[in-house]
């Protein structure tokens, strides 16, 4: 059921998270599994094809665990390609934190999946994502949410 809500604070962010793009309390066996789940949500929400999920996994294999951009937060993505249908974001919060191999920011408690069609059209979304994640308390609010509607109300 849709909740009545005030005007969106982060309109680009709220449209980037399509329906079925958020999953809470998932159980991931390892880094690859966690990234795969973020990719599957981009597929489930109609923003990419399963090939894109493979490219997300290849990217972390190639370039390492730098995708853990802040304590507990990984940003998983592949290259813009024909496997991307539309710009989108997905979000998986993990029931148990998972080690990604990033000394400074491990373990990971949430994975944000990103798919973009080119190198520039997702800039508004990224700008809002940076502001949102930079807000004090936003990460805890995401981690403590009981359902995806509660997360949507944050942006």
């Amino acid at each position: 059921m849709a909740l009545p809500r005030p005007l969106s604070k982060y309109p680009a962010l709220s449209s980037a998270f399509a329906e079925n793009s958020i999953r809470l309390g998932a159980i991931a066996l390892d880094r690859e599994h966690a990234i795969e789940m973020a990719g599957e949500l981009l597929v489930a929400s109609g923003r990419s094809t399963p090939d894109y999920t493979l490219s997300m996994l290849e990217a972390v294999e190639e370039n390492g665990p730098y995708i853990v951009i802040a304590p507990g937060i990984a940003l998983a993505h592949g290259r813009p390609s024909e496997a991307v249908i539309e710009i989108g974001l997905s979000l998986v919060t993990l029931a148990e934190p998972v080690v990604f191999g990033n000394a400074a920011n491990d373990p990971v408690r949430m994975v944000i999946g990103l798919c973009a069609t080119d190198h520039s059209s997702h800039i508004d979304i990224m700008s809002e994502l940076a502001s949102f994640l930079g807000e004090a308390g936003s990460v805890n609010s995401v981690l403590n949410a009981v359902d995806s509607d509660q997360i949507r109300l944050l942006f």
């Binding site: 990217a59 190639e62 370039n63 730098y66 995708i67 951009i69 940003l75 993505h77 592949g78 290259r79 813009p80 990103l114 973009a116 190198h119 997702h122 800039i123 990224m126 700008s127 994502l129 940076a130």
Partner: peptide, 13 residues
Amino acid sequence: CGMGIGTSVLLKM
């Protein structure tokens, strides 16, 4: 960053 579309964009901002 690895691809220049995710992490590096956040860092730039």
